[in-house]
Write a protein that binds this DNA or RNA. Structure first.
Lengths: 141, 141
DNA sequence: TACATACCTGACTAAAATGGTCAAGTTTAG
DNA sequence: CTAAACTTGACCATTTTAGTCAGGTATGTA
């Protein structure tokens, strides 16, 4: 299972972006400063978010990034998928030599991981960027 | 978040053990052969399982390991905890310099990870070794 | 048209985690 | 007394992570 800082940074950056993009595009520099994430690293992350059409970029002076969808339509699944955080608990499939190829001779625990994956993915599919923004508003009252 | 082969191996080995320990203790050698897990690695894992009182060891010829509890009382939580698979999604606390110390200035996504952790842990707390054994019987009919 | 600001790309890397192996025991049934 | 089995701890190759660095390219504004 992979669920690391990259995914977390992506979410943090997008929540930040969502809060400020009403008026102008938001520069990575600003996000970098506000969220304490390395600018270079942010660029890698946003490159992927852009490819997945989660954000749009606006070049030039006063440029930056803008959300490409309604915050309610951006689910966490989409974000993690974009930055290659695979919510794969365990890869049995690589180990075809060893008896678990997902077909006839599943390893004893195969079903378990399938179940878990579904369990986690459901969580992410039901959580949108908008939910996070709201959560955050509440917390900072 | 950590959820890797070690945890999977632990579960596989215990399911295997549970199926064969009615009569005699089960040697790691047998488990190693049946589940294709390195014997040396199994030893590391069982050392931890023993410390956590999930299994008992019986030394000498014809020795081996036996479950120390009813399969129904061994929850997945216990197993993962024993082998140091921490279901910690993201450690914000290490980064106290950077604004998220879990106290006053939580990082924007802090609540999210807390929620996720609870979500996953609930899954593991409700799943016992016995459930897995039953699942497995069904699948192999 | 210059130039600063911002995006864009790819190569590189230190440190940590992973998934083990290896060596050297100790214990006990037969 | 010896082989089978547990026990302990050091060691290590590979992969992943979380970035850095070095160069670009595009474009709004003065």
């Amino acid at each position: 299972m992979k669920l690391t800082s990259k995914g977390r940074y992506a979410v943090m950056a997008l929540v930040d972006l969502a809060r400020f993009d009403n008026i102008n595009p938001v520069s990575l520099r600003d996000i970098s400063l506000r969220q304490s994430i390395s600018l270079d690293y942010l660029e890698q992350i946003f490159s992927k978010l852009k490819k997945n059409e989660i954000v749009k970029s606006i070049r030039g002076t006063q440029g930056g990034y803008v959300l490409n969808k309604n915050p309610n339509d951006i689910k966490l699944t989409n974000i993690f998928h974009a930055v290659d955080e695979k919510v794969k608990t365990v890869q049995c499939k690589k180990e075809s030599k060893r008896g678990c190829n997902g077909k006839a001779t599943k390893c004893i625990t195969h079903n378990l991981w399938d179940e878990l994956e579904i369990h986690i993915n459901t969580f992410f599919e039901n959580k949108s960027l908008e939910d996070l923004i709201n959560d955050n508003k509440e917390t900072r009252v």
